[in-house]
C-alpha cells in the first residue's frame, strides 16, 4: 500500500511567506494539473459541470477512475467533492434544483443518457454515506435488502450465503454471526458503518463510492474501515471523499484535490503528499487552509 510521509508540517508557515492566498487565485480557464487520465479507466468524466439552481458547484471537471484503484478526493469544505461523488451514481437526481452537465461514463456507457435505468446504475455503483445509516431492521435484513430487491438470490440458502459472504468481506461476520436477527441500529458506530459497507457489497457493485465514511467514527473504528478499504480494493473500484489527509495518504492510490468546485490536481497519492505540482495543493496539504 502507498505509504506517504507525514505531511502536515512539511513547510511550516512563516511570517515571511508573502500573503499566500493572493498567489493562489484560480482562473476560469485553469486546467487540472497532474495525471487525470488512466489507460484502464472504469469511469470517465469529461467536462462535468454541476449546478444548484444558478450556483455552479462543479466547474469543468475531467478525470478518469481506473479499474480497482482507490481514488481519494480531498479539499477544503464546500469544494464540491461530495457533490461530484454523488453525481457518479446520480444520487443528485433526488435534489430537484441540481443539474449535471458534461459526460460521465462507466465502461463507455453514458450514465446520464435517458435510456439508462438509475436503479440498475445504483446496483453497479454502490454508496457508503458519511453517517452510518443502517435500516432500522435486523442485521440480516440490512444486508439481504439489496439482493432481495434486485432478485439476486433464488433461494433462502443463496441469500444466507450472500449475507454471510458480504459480512465476512466487511469483516463484521465474527462480531455479529450470533445476532443476525437483532436490530442493525443496536451496533456501535464503527460496526454500523461496516454493516453499511456489507450492505453495499452484497449486490456486488463494480464501483463503491464512499462519502467521508469515517468522519463520524473514532480512531480505532476508522482504522478498521481503512483496513477494509484496502482489502476491498482488490475486487472493487473505490472512490472515497475524505476530510482527513492522513486517511487519503493511507488508503488511496491516487488523490484528487478539489478547490472551490474545480479539480486542481490529480496525481499518485505519494506524489501529491510529497511533491504536489500545484501551489494550491501544496498550500492545502501543508495546512495553510482547510
Amino acid at each position: 500500500m502507498t505509504q506517504a510521509a507525514p505531511v502536515t508540517k512539511k513547510k511550516p508557515v512563516s511570517k515571511t511567506t508573502p500573503k499566500p492566498m493572493q498567489n493562489l487565485e484560480i482562473t476560469d480557464h485553469q486546467a487540472t494539473v497532474g495525471k487525470c487520465f488512466a489507460d484502464n479507466a472504469k469511469m470517465t468524466m469529461r467536462n462535468v459541470n454541476v449546478f444548484y439552481d444558478d450556483k455552479q458547484a462543479i466547474h469543468d471537471v475531467s478525470i478518469d477512475i481506473a479499474k480497482n484503484e482507490v481514488i481519494a478526493m480531498i479539499g477544503p469544505s464546500g469544494c464540491g467533492k461530495s457533490t461530484f461523488l454523488r453525481s457518479l451514481n446520480r444520487m443528485n437526481d433526488t435534489v430537484d434544483i441540481c443539474r449535471v452537465e458534461g459526460q460521465i461514463c462507466m465502461d463507455g456507457e453514458d450514465l446520464y443518457s435517458p435510456k439508462l435505468d438509475v436503479v440498475e446504475l445504483r446496483a453497479r455503483v454502490g454508496m457508503v454515506f458519511q453517517k452510518p445509516n443502517p435500516f432500522p431492521k435486523s442485521i440480516y435484513e440490512n444486508v439481504a435488502y439489496g439482493p432481495k430487491i434486485h432478485g439476486l438470490a433464488d433461494t433462502r440458502v443463496d441469500l444466507d450465503e450472500i449475507v454471510e459472504n458480504s459480512l465476512r468481506k466487511a469483516s463484521l461476520w465474527e462480531e455479529v454471526k450470533e445476532r443476525l436477527h437483532q436490530a442493525g441500529t443496536g451496533l456501535s458506530g464503527g460496526q454500523q458503518q461496516r454493516l453499511c459497507i456489507a450492505r453495499a457489497i452484497a449486490v456486488s457493485p463494480e464501483v463503491i463510492l464512499m462519502d467521508e465514511p469515517c468522519s463520524a467514527l473514532d480512531p480505532i473504528a476508522t482504522a478498521r474501515i481503512e483496513e477494509l478499504i484496502e482489502e476491498l480494493s482488490q475486487n472493487f473500484t473505490i472512490a472515497i471523499v475524505t476530510h482527513s489527509m492522513q486517511q487519503a495518504a493511507r488508503v488511496s492510490h491516487r488523490t484528487a484535490y478539489f478547490h472551490l468546485g474545480r479539480l486542481i490536481e490529480v496525481n499518485p497519492t505519494e506524489q501529491v503528499f510529497t511533491m504536489p505540482e500545484h501551489q494550491l495543493t501544496e498550500a492545502y496539504i501543508t495546512g495553510r487552509f482547510g
Binding site: M91, T94, R122, A123, M127, F129, N133, Y145, R199, V203
Partner: peptide
C-alpha cells in the same frame, strides 16, 4: 438518511 440508504442500494 434512510431514504438515501435505500436509494443508494438501487
Amino acid at each position: 438518511s434512510i431514504r438515501e440508504a435505500a436509494m443508494g442500494m438501487g
